[in-house]
Amino acid sequence: MRHLLALAIKFVMVAAVLLIVLTLIFDVSFVDTLLISLALTALSYAMGDIMIFLNAGRPENQSGRNTIATFVDFVMAFLTIWLIGWLLTGQNFEMVTPALVGALVLSAGEWFFHLYVDRSVVPEYNNYKSARS
C-alpha cells in the first residue's frame, strides 16, 4: 500500500511539472504529456527510486544515495521525455529543450521525493520508525 501511495504522489508531481513545462510552455498536447508522465513515473519509480536509490550505497549514507539517484533520475527523465515526446509528436530536435527543462525541474523534486521514500515507503531500510507506526 505504501508503494501505491508513493506512485500516486510521484505521478501527480511528474504530471504537474510536465503539464506546466511541456503543455503550457512548449505547446505539447495534453494527452501526449499525460502519456509521457505515466511512462516516466513507472520507469523512474522502479529504477531510480527503488533499484538505484536503495542500492547506491550503504543505508546510512542517505545523502550519497540521494545524489546518485537524483542524477540518474535526471538522465532518465531527459531521455524519456525526449524519446517518447519525439515518438508522439514527431519532433526530434524541438523536444530537446522541453526535455532538458522538464528533467531539471523534476530532478529538484526527486531529491525531496527520495527523502519521502526513505522515511515513509521503506523505513525499515534505514531503521526509521514509520510515520504510520
Rank of each mutant, 00 (worst) to 15 (best):
F30Y: 09
L104R: 01
R65V: 04
I81V: 06
Q91F: 13
D73I: 08
A42V: 12
A8E: 06
M95F: 09
S44R: 10
V72M: 08
F93C: 11
G48V: 03
A69D: 02
R119S: 12
T70D: 02
L40S: 11
I81G: 00
W82N: 01
T97F: 15
P98M: 13
V28S: 01
W86H: 13
I9Q: 08
V101P: 00
T97A: 15
N126V: 02
L7W: 12
I50C: 10
R65D: 03
D27L: 15
G57Y: 00
L19D: 04
A6M: 04
I25V: 10
N61S: 07
D32F: 13
F74G: 00
R119C: 08
S37K: 04
N127K: 13
G109F: 12
N126Q: 07
G85K: 05
N61Y: 13
I20M: 14
K10C: 03
F11W: 11
W86D: 05
H3T: 05
Y45E: 05
V14W: 08
A77Y: 02
K10M: 06
T41K: 07
M51E: 12
M1H: 15
L18K: 05
I9T: 02
L40M: 14
L38W: 12
L54I: 02
V17S: 01
V121M: 04
L115Q: 14
V12P: 07
Y128L: 10
N55R: 01
F93H: 14
Q91N: 13
K129R: 15
D49K: 07
V117N: 13
S44G: 14
V12S: 15
L4M: 11
Y125T: 07
I84Y: 07
S44P: 07
W111R: 13
M1F: 15
N126S: 09
I36E: 03
E60K: 08
L88D: 01
L22K: 00
M1Q: 11
L54N: 00
L100G: 02
G85R: 06
N126L: 07
L79A: 12
N127P: 02
V28A: 02
V21L: 04
F71S: 09
W86N: 10
W111V: 11
F78M: 00
L54H: 04
L43W: 05
F26L: 05
W111A: 11
T23V: 12
P59N: 00
V14P: 04
V121E: 02
F30P: 09
D118G: 06
L24M: 14
S107H: 04
E124A: 08
N126R: 09
G64T: 01
W111F: 15
L43G: 05
S133K: 14
Y116W: 06
D118P: 01
P123C: 05
